[in-house]
Simulated scan of single mutants.
Amino acid sequence: MSKLWDFTRISVTQKNLHELKEIWDQWDDEIKQLFYREYGNLSYLLDVKVDNHLFRALTQYWNHAYSYFTSGKVDLVPTVEEYTTLLRCPRIQVDKVYSRVANVLTFLKRLMNITGMSEPWVAAQIKQKGDSKCIPWKSLRDLILVHPNTKKRVNIFTLSIYELVIFPKVLGHVDNAVLDLFDRLDKRVTPVSIILAKTFRYLSACQRVGEGRFIECAQLLLAWFHGHFWKVEKVFYRVFSEDYSPLK
């Protein structure tokens, strides 16, 4: 039996997303096509509105013992295949799962490679947040707006999406863990397994205590949720159908 809380206090606070959306809207078709070729249609996540009430309900129906949503006779859980489809990234290979390697470049060196900026500039931007090295989103935003290299602008923009939308652990900053994952995308690894693992972890943590901050990709989870329900008179999740899903 699921033990559901009468009221779940859950926060899905995310900052700076409107700034990412403004940058995206200012780009011409040429830059957007470069983004699509390199990273898929990841930008659609910027348009997914996070519904706090829906997240509260989802958390209440999460069964942390078995890691799925359960309601009556219906059990639902995001799969690797579904999240791979929703990420829409042509570079990743499903059989190359991300794992952190022991010997990697330093945070500073990887930032230099991704941004194309000098060592003094990068060193001046790095901050310490707890036990993690970070770079403020403001520094990356300013760089996206003025960087002369279009490919670097796209890379920095995508790195910002992975931090601010998919893994918003340190609000307003890009941390070392996300930089490592993003750096490995060039090796065509898939980040889906770690996204799912962290999603399950935070859903379970919030469900057990009845409150908390969901700090994984809320937009991606809601895009998955909406994909399993019909639209009736432009209203989501009114009629459930086992035979229908845009994910197919």
Rank of each mutant, 00 (worst) to 15 (best):
K73P: 11
I31S: 06
T70Y: 12
A57G: 13
H64D: 06
K96Q: 12
H53F: 06
H173K: 08
N103A: 15
M117C: 14
Y39L: 05
T79N: 10
E81D: 15
N52F: 10
Q128S: 06
V74A: 11
V97A: 14
Y61R: 11
D131T: 13
S67V: 09
E119I: 01
K133P: 04
A123V: 00
S99P: 08
C134V: 03
N52S: 12
N52L: 13
Y68Q: 11
H173E: 15
L164H: 06
L159R: 01
S67P: 08
I92P: 06
K129A: 14
N41F: 14
D75Q: 14
K133Q: 09
H64S: 09
R110N: 13
M117Q: 09
F107P: 10
K32Q: 05
V74I: 15
S118R: 02
M117H: 10
D95I: 09
D175S: 12
I92L: 14
C89P: 11
I31E: 14
L86K: 06
L46R: 04
K151W: 05
L58R: 05
Q60F: 10
V97H: 09
P78D: 13
I144F: 00
K49M: 10
P136H: 00
T70W: 09
E38N: 12
R88F: 15
I92H: 10
Y83L: 15
V48M: 08
P120S: 05
A123R: 04
S43G: 04
H147Q: 05
P136R: 02
E82F: 08
Y66N: 14
V77F: 13
W121N: 07
A65Q: 14
L87F: 04
V48D: 04
Y44V: 13
V48T: 07
I135E: 03
V80C: 13
D47N: 09
F107Q: 03
T59N: 12
N63Q: 11
W62P: 02
T115W: 00
D51W: 00
V174P: 07
K73G: 15
P136Q: 02
V154G: 04
V50M: 07
N149H: 05
K152T: 07
V170F: 13
P78A: 12
E119P: 00
L45G: 05
L46M: 11
L76H: 10
Y44P: 06
E38Q: 11
L143F: 03
T150I: 10
E81K: 08
I166C: 07
E163A: 15
P78E: 10
D95R: 11
H147I: 08
P120C: 01
I144S: 03
Q128W: 02
I31R: 04
D75C: 15
V50S: 02
D47E: 10
T79R: 05
L87Q: 02
L46C: 06
D95Q: 14
N155F: 05
E82Y: 08
T59M: 10
P136N: 03
N155R: 05
D175N: 12
T150R: 05
T70H: 12
K96S: 08
N155H: 09
V94Y: 09
G172N: 01
N155P: 04
T84V: 12
E82M: 08
V165T: 03
L108G: 05
I166E: 01
Y36G: 06
E163S: 15
